[in-house]
Amino acid sequence: MDVDYEEIAYKIVHMCARIREDETVTIMGREDNLFYCELIALACSKLGALPHVAVRSDTYALRRATETSLEYLRKTPRHIKALIQNSDVIITVSFLFKDPALSSRIPEERYSAERSGNKPIKDIIFDGHRRWVGTDFPTPEQAASYGVDFEYYHDTFWQAMNVDYPALASRAEDLAVVLRGAKVVRIFSPKGTNLSLSIEGRRINKDDGVIDEEDVKRGDPYLNLPSGEVCMAPLETSANGKVVFDIGFWQGQKIKDLEVEFKDGRVTPLGAREGLDIFVKVLETSEGDKDRIGELGIGLNPAVKEAIGDTLLDEKIIGTIHLAIGENRNEGGINNSTLHWDLLVEKATVEVDGRVIMREGKFSLDIV
């Protein structure tokens, strides 16, 4: 499909982030999507906002991560920290390498050191005082790493970006109504998931394509694009039971059928069809509340039909849930960690205070 990047940039600025005149906007991307970042910046400039664009190449990111010391990687650049502190809006146009295969060349302890150095900056981004939009830009190299056709990946991504946002917002609100004030959520799946957790007293966040005044007042001025989920931070000590995650990715590496046990919120790996060593290594090298339940999310985007391997897309699939471990303060929780990792459960059955709202991937509610 042909993509009108300028139109999408306009929507991000005017509809999604609702940027206003004289606001400061920092846009961070990759060398290959500089033109797209600049279109977003131009849309900001035309309405009188003050954008700044910063991009990097895969080559630089790889060499920085592999050719410098661990002590260097743990440093936090104070001028970048000041830039973010003085930004009203941050737009991230790059979650991944242009070529994810390069990320496998970086030892996990070096990723951990980088996450440690970046954490003070992320803490500012997600302190509730500024808006954040996180998105990406699909590439043939990413499609190859997922083992999918690029045309299919490309079209799925941009179709998911261009959904009917008012309809998506209505769908998200319908689901949020069911979850507000609820106490106990139970999750099952055909592969053996049987988990109980509590969301009592936690705010219900809607990733519906728009950061509106309600989101700002609620302390949830954050947005993923493509959008399409309702998520929350469960009580961190409440998760008990077994989960089998159908799929997960870490720096371009795939994990399949990961079986874990939660006990009083803490996760213990039990086995996996593929990638158990990756999961164990990430936990070993991360810091803080890295192994505690952090998030429960329910997908709502009708344009995403099946798991591709891109978490940004996969977690939006209608009929799936995802759980994250680690950092969750931006979602209303208390975990403080260098890690936030989303993993997907397909064909889930979900009960809320004993009421079935989803059965094997099909909503029992009239919201889709």
Rank of each mutant, 00 (worst) to 15 (best):
G201V: 04
Y36W: 13
W250E: 02
L168S: 03
A49V: 09
H14Y: 08
T59K: 14
I357F: 05
G361K: 08
G219K: 12
C16V: 03
Y60F: 15
K290M: 00
N205F: 13
N330L: 03
A272D: 11
F150A: 15
E108S: 05
L34K: 14
M161E: 15
L276V: 10
G361V: 05
I334P: 00
H322S: 14
E67D: 15
V244N: 03
R131P: 11
G48K: 09
C16S: 15
D246V: 02
V244D: 07
E295N: 05
L339S: 14
E31C: 06
E31Y: 12
M1T: 09
K316T: 01
H322I: 09
D212T: 02
K347A: 01
E173L: 12
R64D: 10
Q253F: 00
K206W: 00
P166Y: 04
E261Y: 06
P100M: 01
E38T: 14
H154Y: 15
K11L: 13
A307G: 08
K206V: 03
S104T: 08
V267T: 02
M358R: 10
D149H: 12
D155A: 12
L179P: 04
E21C: 13
R105E: 13
S189W: 01
V260N: 02
E114Q: 15
W158E: 08
R273W: 01
S104Y: 02
N335I: 04
V178F: 03
E331W: 05
A61V: 12
K81H: 11
D149V: 14
S112F: 07
G288R: 10
G326Y: 08
T285Q: 06
E151P: 00
K75G: 14
P234M: 14
I84T: 10
A43C: 04
L197S: 09
Y153A: 12
S196L: 01
R130C: 02
D4N: 15
D58E: 08
T76K: 05
